[in-house]
Design a protein around this nucleic acid. Structure first.
Lengths: 252, 252
DNA sequence: CGTCAAAAGTCTGGAAACAGACCAATGGAT
DNA sequence: ATCCATTGGTCTGTTTCCAGACTTTTGACG
C-alpha cells in the first residue's frame, strides 16, 4: 500500500536492549504459581499460625483463578503440612506452620534457589522501591489515622516476641508502602519483600540486630512524620543496607 | 493431632490490610494480555515504524506463550492496522503505525480509561521507581561502556525530530533503569512508563517543554556520572514532577 | 435438640492454551 | 535459473483451566 517502505525492506531487527517489555505474559503454571503465593503469604506471616485463609470462593476470586485450581494448591499445602483444612461452617484452611528455627545451611540453598544474580537484583530492587515509597510518604500530608497506623506498627515491631519479629517487621515495611495510597507501589514493595523473605527466614534473629533495626525504624517513622523526604529516604536506605550487609555477612 | 488448636477454634480472620499478596495470579486472558503487550511495545516505539517483531517462535518463547496464542494476537493487531505481516524468508510482522498527531480530547479519555485513582497511582509509582533507579545508578561505579550508552541516549533525545521524541525519551528513561543491572527494577520502570504512555501520547510535543526537559535530562546524566545519588534523585524527581504538572495542566 | 447458614467437597461439560509436526511462500545466494 | 534457509500458515491431539451446579459436613444458635 505505501511504496516508501515496500522496497525499503528495512529489516532493522528489534532494538536489542529494550526488551523488558517482552517479558513473560503468564508465569507458567497457575497451580504452581498459586502454591508459591500461598506459601509466601504463610511464610510472611500475612496469615499467621492459627488463622485461616479466606473461603475458597473468595480467595479464588481474589487470585483470579478457578476454585478447582485453588483447591489443588491448598491440597498440596495440606499434604506438605502447612495447612489444616476443616469443613463445615466455621471451617476453612487453617495455617499450621510456625517459622522454623532459622538454620544456617538454609541460607546458601535459598540464595542458590534465586539463581545467578538474583540476590543482587532483589536487593537493588528492594532498595529502590522502598526508598521511593518512604520518600513519597514523607512528602504527603498524612491524616491522623495514617500517622496512627504508622506509629502503631512501629510499636508492634518493637514489642514483638522473637517468633513474631519477622512478621511484624514485614507488616511495618509494607504499611509504609500501603500508606502512600498507590496500589502499584504497594504491590512492588510486597514483591520486593517476598524475594528476600526466604533469605531472612534463614538467618537467626539476633538481639543486637533487632536493637539496631528498631533505632532505624524509629528514624524512618520520625522522618516521615516530620515530612522530611530526604531524611526518610536516607533512613530507609541505611536500614536496608544494614539488612543487605547482614545477609552478605552470613554468606561469606 | 494437636489438641491446643482444636478447641481454640481461633477463627481470626485474615488480617485486612495485608492483601497485596493475594493479588491475581494470572492476568486474565493470555490472548488479550499479549495484544496489550505488543500494542504497548509498538506505541512506546520499542519496535518503531518499519521495524519488525522477532520471529513468531522466538517471540512466543520470550512471552512465555504458545505460538498459536501469539499468532492470534498478531492477527488482531494486523486487522487493527498496526502490523503488516509478510511471509517467506526476510518476512515477519512489520510495524505499520506512526504515533498519531496528538489530539486534545484524547487525554481525558485516556485518563478515564485508567479508572478511579489510576492517574495518581501511576504517577506516584513512576516517581518512586524512577527516582530509585537513578539513585541506584548514581551509586554504582559505571564502566566506560555504560557511561557511553547513557550519554549517547541523551544525545539522541536532544537531537530527536518531534515525531521521534517520545520514543527516544522513553529509551533514555528506560536505559537508566536497565543500566542498574537489576531486571526487576528495569521491569518496574518499564511498567511505570507504560502506564503513562497513553497520556503522554495524547498531549502535544511543545518546544518549550522539550527544551526544559532536555536541561533536566542533562542534569540527570551529569549527576549520575558525577556519582551523586542525591542530586540524581532530585533531578529525576524534578523532571517527573514537571511531566506530571504538564499532564495535570492539560486536564484542568 | 433441631435448624440452618457457611464452609469444604464433588462432578460435568466446555473453553483456552499448549506442544509439536508439517506445509507454503519468499527472496537472497549460488 | 535454481537452491534453500528462514519465516509465516495450518493442523491435530492433549493438557490445563474454568464456570457453575450440586452434595456433604459442621457447629453456633435458638
Amino acid at each position: 500500500m505505501d511504496a516508501p517502505r515496500a522496497r525499503a525492506s528495512a529489516v532493522r531487527a528489534v532494538s536489542a536492549p529494550l526488551l523488558p517489555l517482552l517479558r513473560p505474559v503468564r508465569s507458567g503454571n497457575a497451580f504452581e504459581e498459586t502454591v508459591e503465593r500461598l506459601l509466601q503469604a504463610i511464610k510472611l506471616g500475612v496469615v499467621a499460625h492459627g488463622e485461616k485463609l479466606p473461603p475458597e470462593r473468595e480467595l479464588a476470586a481474589q487470585l483470579g483463578i478457578s476454585r478447582v485450581t485453588l483447591r489443588e494448591a491448598i491440597r498440596a499445602l495440606q499434604d506438605a503440612g502447612f495447612l489444616d483444612v476443616r469443613r463445615g461452617r466455621y471451617g476453612g484452611a487453617f495455617v499450621v506452620y510456625e517459622p522454623p528455627r532459622p538454620g544456617q545451611g538454609d541460607l546458601r540453598r535459598a540464595v542458590k534457589a534465586m539463581g545467578q544474580g538474583g540476590l543482587e537484583d532483589a536487593l537493588t530492587f528492594r532498595m529502590a522501591v522502598e526508598c521511593g515509597a518512604a520518600e513519597v510518604l514523607a512528602s504527603a500530608e498524612l491524616t491522623a489515622a495514617q500517622r496512627g497506623t504508622l506509629t502503631r506498627r512501629l510499636e508492634e515491631v518493637n514489642e514483638a516476641a522473637p517468633a513474631d519479629y519477622r512478621r511484624l517487621d514485614t507488616a511495618f515495611h509494607l504499611s509504609i508502602a500501603e500508606l502512600t495510597g498507590s496500589p502499584l507501589l504497594a504491590a512492588a514493595c510486597a514483591d520486593a519483600r517476598l524475594r528476600v523473605t526466604d533469605l531472612l527466614n534463614a538467618i537467626p534473629v539476633l538481639g543486637p540486630n533487632i536493637e539496631h533495626a528498631s533505632v532505624q525504624h524509629a528514624a524512618i517513622v520520625a522522618a516521615i512524620l516530620a515530612r522530611d523526604p530526604d531524611a526518610a529516604r536516607r533512613a530507609v536506605a541505611e536500614h536496608l543496607e544494614g539488612t543487605a550487609a547482614l545477609l552478605r555477612g552470613f554468606l561469606s
